[in-house]
């Protein structure tokens, strides 16, 4: 039981990885243990966690990427459908929902962001809705879609993109690049460099110390964004997987309360990510 439990958990925490195995790599068949050596480097789907690991950086998590793009497309499709038919008169149901979300985001931006930048609203809206939709995949029972995928022949399948550090770091790096872009755009290269060198201690002797602090602070922003979201989602996912190890008739005792708890967690994490994005971009626009 312990062995199979561990296997079950690691299996559910492994992404479907498509990547490059180098020439001379020895693949081990997980059913009969036979070994085959690759003559040339090949792009293929990893059949074990070890293979996925050995692929290194030249690999793609098909499940994370696919589901995140699907969820993003869902967001874009729904909202652009509402936007295309948007009227100033009596709004329909879809337009109503979309407008409520937009108004909510707009309110957050107005409260937090004091510069003038028409980009902040769309960025915040995308971040909020997209991350919410990706997080919400957690409500789907852990074995449901992976089960269908394994029937279709996929060795692994993990559907929540935000429980994959690649997924959260991708968005966080996007935000980081926006921070750098707007810092330089608003303050100029010199102004940005000056801000990094002369805060918090405004003396030339402190330049190295200031630089160390500020660059560290700057790098902490995307890191904290990505790790907070990833940590929350991954931990929640692990708990769902652990609950799934219980006998089927007892699972509801734990997984229903846990899913209900995620009604709080899922929007909250999306909200925190959005608010911090707005705050960071607001700081990037502030001239000291």
């Amino acid at each position: 039981m312990a062995d199979s439990s561990q296997e079950y958990i690691t299996h559910h925490l492994q992404n479907l990885t498509y990547g490059k195995l180098p020439a001379g790599y020895v693949r081990v068949n997980k059913y009969d243990g036979t070994e085959t050596e690759l003559t040339t480097s090949t792009w293929t789907i990893a059949q074990s966690s070890q293979e996925a690991k050995d692929m290194g950086f030249m690999a793609v998590h098909l499940d994370s990427l696919g589901w995140s793009v699907f969820m993003g497309a869902l967001f874009v499709w729904l909202f652009s459908r509402a936007a295309k038919k948007a009227t100033a008169g009596v709004p329909g149901t879809l337009q109503n929902i979309c407008e409520s979300v937009v108004e909510f985001v707009q309110g957050m931006v107005k409260d937090t962001f004091h510069g003038r930048n028409p980009m902040i609203g769309p960025i915040a809206l995308t971040v909020f809705v997209w991350i919410f939709l990706m997080n919400s995949l957690k409500w789907i029972p852990v074995d449901f879609i992976p089960g269908i995928a394994s029937m279709l022949g996929a060795p692994y399948f993990k559907i929540v993109p935000t429980a994959d550090p690649n997924g959260t770091f991708g968005v966080a790096i996007g935000v980081f690049l926006l921070i750098l872009f707007y810092s330089i755009k608003v303050k100029g290269v010199g102004g940005f460099a000056k801000e990094l060198s002369f805060t918090p201690f405004n003396h030339w002797l402190f330049i190295p110390f200031n630089l160390f602090l500020e660059v560290l602070g700057l790098l902490t922003k995307p890191l904290s964004l990505a790790l907070r979201l990833f940590g929350n989602m991954y931990a929640g996912e692990v708990v769902f997987i652990l609950i799934a190890l219980l006998p089927f008739y007892a699972q509801w005792v734990l997984n229903i309360p846990w899913a209900i708890f995620h009604i709080l967690v899922i929007p909250l994490q999306a909200f925190i990510f959005m608010v911090l994005t707005i705050v960071y971009l607001s700081q990037a626009h502030e001239d000291h």
Partner: peptide, 8 residues
């Protein structure tokens, strides 16, 4: 891995 880039 490259997923980060794809996500970005």
């Amino acid at each position: 891995n490259l997923t980060v880039l794809g996500q970005l």
